[in-house]
C-alpha cells in the first residue's frame, strides 16, 4: 500500500467553489484527521477518494487523486473496484434493512461469491475485527435495526472490512453516538490502523487529538495547515489553525 496523493484539486458545485487547489499526501497505516468548521470542504474532500461525489448534480472536479500511483479520476478507472479498495463509514449508521448477516455478506455477494461456508467465515472474521462478534454471534439472523446506534456503526465498519479494503474513509463516524459507544469506536480505530490507512473527518477536536497521527485543517475550501497531530495541537504555524483548535471560532 502506498500513499494517497491529492494534486492541485479543485471542486465546484455549480458556481460554488468548494475545494480550492488542495494538494496533500496521506501516509499509509496512519490515521489522518480532517478538521475544520462546517462547510469548509472537509467532507467533500474525503468523498473524493472513493468518488462518492460523482452522483451529486453539477459536481465538477479538476486535478488528480492518486492511489497506488493511479489517477482514480481517469475515465478508464472502474469506480466499483475502486470503492472496494477504498471503503467508507458514514456520519449516521446506515445499515441495510436486512439481517446482520446479510449486511456483512452483501459486499461479497455482489461480487458473485455465494458459497455459504466462505461467506460464513468472512462474516465472522469481519465482525470479529469490528469487535462486534461477541455481541451478535447468536443473533445474526436478526434485523440490523435491532442493534443500538453504536453497534450499528460497528456493523457498518464490519461490512466495509468484509470486502477487504486498503483504505477506510470515515465521515464523522461518532457524531450520532453516545460517549461510551464513541470510546469503543475510537479503540477500534486504533486497532484498525495497523492494517488499514484511515482518513477521518471529525468535528471533535479532542477526538482528533486522541486518535490521529496527522491532522489537516481546512478553512473555506482551502487546506490551511497539515502536519503531525502533535505539532498541530501544540504549535500550529497559522493563526487561523490556532484560533480554531483553541475553540475561538468554528
Amino acid at each position: 500500500m502506498n500513499q494517497l496523493i491529492a494534486k492541485n484539486v479543485n471542486v465546484w458545485y455549480g458556481e460554488n467553489h468548494a475545494i480550492k487547489d488542495v494538494s496533500m499526501v496521506i501516509e499509509p497505516y496512519q490515521v489522518t484527521a480532517l478538521i475544520g468548521p462546517s462547510g469548509c470542504g472537509k467532507s467533500t474532500f474525503l468523498r473524493l477518494f472513493n468518488r462518492m461525489n460523482d452522483y451529486i448534480d453539477n459536481f465538477r472536479m479538476e486535478g488528480e487523486i492518486l492511489i497506488n500511483e493511479t489517477n482514480i479520476y481517469d475515465p478508464t478507472v472502474n469506480t466499483e473496484a475502486l470503492r472496494k479498495k477504498v471503503g467508507m463509514v458514514f456520519q449516521k449508521p446506515n445499515p441495510f434493512p436486512t439481517s446482520i448477516y446479510e449486511n456483512v455478506a452483501f459486499g461479497m455477494k455482489i461480487q458473485g461469491m455465494n458459497k455459504k461456508s466462505e461467506l460464513d467465515e468472512i462474516v465472522e472474521t469481519s465482525l470479529r475485527k469490528a469487535v462486534l462478534w461477541d455481541e451478535v454471534k447468536d443473533s445474526l439472523k436478526k434485523s440490523a435495526f435491532s442493534l443500538s446506534g453504536g453497534q450499528q456503526q460497528r456493523l457498518c465498519i464490519a461490512r466495509t472490512l468484509a470486502v477487504e479494503p486498503e483504505v477506510i474513509l470515515m465521515d464523522e463516524p461518532a457524531s450520532a453516538l453516545d460517549p461510551i459507544s464513541t470510546s469503543k469506536l475510537e479503540n477500534l480505530i486504533f486497532e484498525l490502523k495497523k492494517s488499514y490507512t484511515i482518513v477521518i473527518v471529525t468535528h471533535n477536536m479532542q477526538q482528533a487529538g486522541r486518535i490521529s497521527d496527522q491532522t489537516a485543517f481546512f478553512f473555506m475550501g482551502k487546506l490551511i495547515e497539515y502536519d503531525s497531530t502533535k505539532k498541530m495541537f501544540l504549535k500550529p504555524t497559522h493563526l487561523q489553525t490556532q484560533n480554531y483548535i483553541t475553540g475561538r471560532f468554528g
Binding site: Y55, K84, F90, F106, I110
Partner: peptide, 26 residues
C-alpha cells in the same frame, strides 16, 4: 433513505446492484 444507496455504493455495488438488491426490496 439516500444513506442506503450510499452504503451500497461505498461497498463497490454498481448502480443496478444497488437498486435491485437494496432500494427495490426496501
Amino acid at each position: 433513505p439516500k444513506t442506503i444507496k450510499e452504503g451500497a455504493y461505498a461497498l463497490g455495488a454498481t448502480r443496478w446492484q444497488t437498486i435491485w438488491k437494496q432500494q427495490l426490496p426496501a
